[in-house]
């Protein structure tokens, strides 16, 4: 909660510092990163921002086949990574569906008039994602397993 607010403040000050020029440009290309999302606190995405804006679907689609047929799930380019980093949070700290009105994916896709149908099947908030190494380790009921608390992404 506190961190979310801090992110908001950070972003606000960032915008204030760089002034109108940044805002104008953001409008031009459509900057839809939500202040409450984890992404807002990062310098750029898994690839340079400009590249992601144009080519994120190529990456996701490539990763999709890697995951479905090759079983490679840990990559940066998977859709669950997009969701966990870009999902916004409401005042109470609960994640907001990323394909909802005004949310990251939806608002840009609406701007670009491109159909968004990933979320017919994929989770719109990070839920039950947590079959990762930490949970696998905890799952094995082992002494000494690094049982870290669930991150916001794993809720």
């Amino acid at each position: 909660m506190a961190t979310v607010m801090m992110k908001g403040v950070l972003l606000a000050s960032l915008v204030a510092t760089f002034g109108m020029g940044v805002v104008a440009q953001a409008e031009e290309v459509g900057d839809y990163v939500l202040p409450s999302s984890k992404a807002a606190s990062l310098e750029n995405c898994v690839e340079p921002t400009e590249y992601m804006r144009r080519n994120h679907f190529e990456l996701i689609r490539h990763q999709r086949d890697q995951t479905v047929y090759g079983g490679i799930r840990g990559s940066d380019h998977g859709i669950s990574g997009c969701v966990s980093c870009h999902v916004g949070y409401d005042d109470k700290g609960a994640p907001v569906e990323i394909d909802g009105k005004g949310q990251f994916c939806q608002s840009c896709h609406e701007y670009a008039a491109v159909e968004l149908n990933c979320f017919d099947c994929h989770a719109t908030v990070p839920t039950g994602e947590a079959w990762n190494h930490e949970v696998a380790a905890a799952h094995a009921h082992l002494p000494g397993a690094a049982k870290t608390g669930p991150t916001s992404a794993e809720r």
């Binding site: 799930r73 190494h133 380790a137």
Partner: peptide, 29 residues
């Protein structure tokens, strides 16, 4: 994390077979 889980899984042999790559895979199956 991978290291932790590899180390963690090993003693759990009775439940889980250890395999060479007991972590998120990076190579296709």
């Amino acid at each position: 994390a991978a290291g932790v889980s590899a180390a963690a899984v090993a003693p759990g042999m009775f439940l889980h077979t250890p395999v060479a790559n007991a972590a998120a895979r990076t190579e296709p199956v």
